[in-house]
Amino acid sequence: MEKPGGGGVLSAKEAFEKLEKVGEGTYGKVYRAREKATGKIVALKKTRLHEDEEGVPPTTLREVSILRMLSRDPHVVRLMDVKQGQNKEGKTVLYLVFEYMDTDLKKFIRSFRQTGQTVPPQTIKSLMYQLCKGVAFCHGHGILHRDLKPHNLLMDPKTMMLKIADLGLARAFTVPIKKYTHEILTLWYRAPEVLLGATHYSMAVDIWSVGCIFAELVTKQALFPGDSELQQLLHIFRLLGTPNEDVWPGVSKLMNWHEYPQWNPQSLSTAVPSLDELGLDLLSQMLKYEPSKRISAKKAMEHAYFDDLDKRHL
């Protein structure tokens, strides 16, 4: 049986010079590195392959496979190559070679919070449009991201270009939607149907996350900062009201449904006071309880909120 990986291809160690560690994920570290041949700066995502256990992790398998299809979109991070190498213990290591982006939306928001400045409304609009465009592209190709959060949205602060990254939890979906695990997505950006234990979910889970990110861009604070699944639900219910069969048919049949404290819905302007009327309308459509009533990414791009945005270079 032949050895995996071509003979003439340079290994990751030979091809790249690691410059610094810039992050750490579930399966390994992320480095800023320089490609020796071209001098180009790239991001190297290192993944340990557990030969002694299960081989290529499912998250890596999905991420690489999905990025092979989605990488051509300007709003999805570009996977340039997949390299194989060995660590000091002689174990196989996989390096995903990505284009390097200077920052992410989490750091971008934090920088504004620390200086006490507000993110300019046109910048918010531009970033939100790019996010909707990237999500629409993913959904149009049958891919759910399932882990949209500011940390996974890479940015170039000079050009204000935004790209969706970290598709480790992403997966292809079929119509009709089949059962998926409900243990996905960082709590703060997790849709209520997922929190309530739904295993049949769809593109709407990503739209909820987009709505949470939208509000966070405006206020520089997480909209629903829960520290447990229950607290997360209560945060949502306090603002949007406790759902019932009238506003969300079928909610009481979901696996994690209990009798919750009863709150009346508040106006979104109480949580996001500086957002204009059109922005609030778009946000309210992104944060609808009933998943099928939530706006799609494609429809969101056509919303009047984006009418005054110059979309030519986005």
């Binding site: 049986m1 032949e2 050895k3 995996p4 990986g5 071509g6 392959l49 081989g55 290529v56 398998l61 999905r62 690489v64 496979s65 092979r68 299809m69 997949v82 194989q84 196989t92």
Partner: peptide, 11 residues
């Protein structure tokens, strides 16, 4: 790994 490399990870 051989299959993944040959199919260029396109699943």
């Amino acid at each position: 790994k051989i299959i993944l490399a040959k199919l260029e990870w396109t699943l």
